[in-house]
Design a protein around this nucleic acid. Structure first.
Lengths: 156, 156
DNA sequence: TTATTTGCAAAGTCTTTGCAAGCAG
DNA sequence: CTGCTTGCAAAGACTTTGCAAATAA
């Protein structure tokens, strides 16, 4: 019932950065803050992060955003996702591996992305790992179809 | 044990095109041919299709390839896939829905893409459909990890 | 014949990069 | 201080589009 399930915390940023010899900067702090403030199932593109920051009067260069979301992704703080709409998106990583995974339902009609908050893929992962001799560390699952709203709209 | 499982056939192309008031052209025929000839688990980008055609002395414009793979995708003959490497890829669709689905295992070390030829997601799909009131028509599943070769190479 | 399709080049979108100036540690 | 980081503008990679010429039906 908590607002979020152990998301990466702002106060841990400096530490995580210095572990890898990166420096703490206002840019990095504010970028992460945007993801924390929007951690309710949003998938932000670089441009969107840029705009959200501008609304808060932080006028960082776009290139800085590009560099830093990729950095945060490489540190495991954010996760890259791609919905095939031509831009890379990121979401705040859930720090707890037990509840880490969720799936995305993408409506082919209205393009809405719905989160499905359970994983249920452990068995399949295990099966694949065994059968293909492949060590799985992560997965990305998208379901395409039609949301209830769109199904009720048209009798197509 | 057959070479491929009911892939879309070249001879059906003209019919499928005319159903939607598209015309049969040598370009469309040869593009589909490339996918049929490479239907053993390859995921061709537009550029790769272009190059494969050039090797066969078909010098079509790149824009024509772009337009037609997207057309074949819209007709359900090809399927778009995105491995996050910055280019859109396509694979020949399996015409038999029973054996339609497979998954992709992507090695984070050597970037190799391995096909996993079983689906096993019916139960999960059904569960999601019921729980989220979402009508699923397709899915795309990627597993990220390390292939056996790469695991044996480095003790990282 | 006539609407589609092609090929080319130009334009578009998203992303990366080089480099001087700025800043964190 | 010193090396990492930023911001800008330029360059890059992939994809789309406008338009005249070619072509399938």
């Amino acid at each position: 019932m908590s607002d979020n399930n152990q998301l990466f915390k702002l106060k841990d940023l400096r530490g995580r950065l210095s572990e890898h010899n990166y420096k703490m900067t206002p840019q990095r702090q504010e970028i992460l803050k945007v993801f924390i403030e929007n951690s309710n199932g949003s998938h932000l593109s670089t441009e969107e992060v840029y705009e959200l920051l501008r609304k808060k009067d932080f006028d960082f260069g776009l290139a800085t955003i590009y560099r830093n979301v990729e950095l945060l992704n490489s540190l495991g703080i954010l996760t890259r996702i791609d919905f095939g709409d031509g831009r890379t998106r990121y979401e705040l990583n859930n720090a707890n591996p037990r509840i880490h995974q969720h799936h995305h339902l993408i409506c082919l009609s209205c393009k809405k992305v719905i989160e499905f908050e359970e994983d249920l893929l452990d068995n399949l992962e295990e099966f694949i790992a065994r059968k293909s001799d492949f060590q799985i560390v992560n997965h990305e699952v998208k379901f395409f179809g039609y949301c209830s709203e769109c199904r009720n709209k048209v009798t197509n």
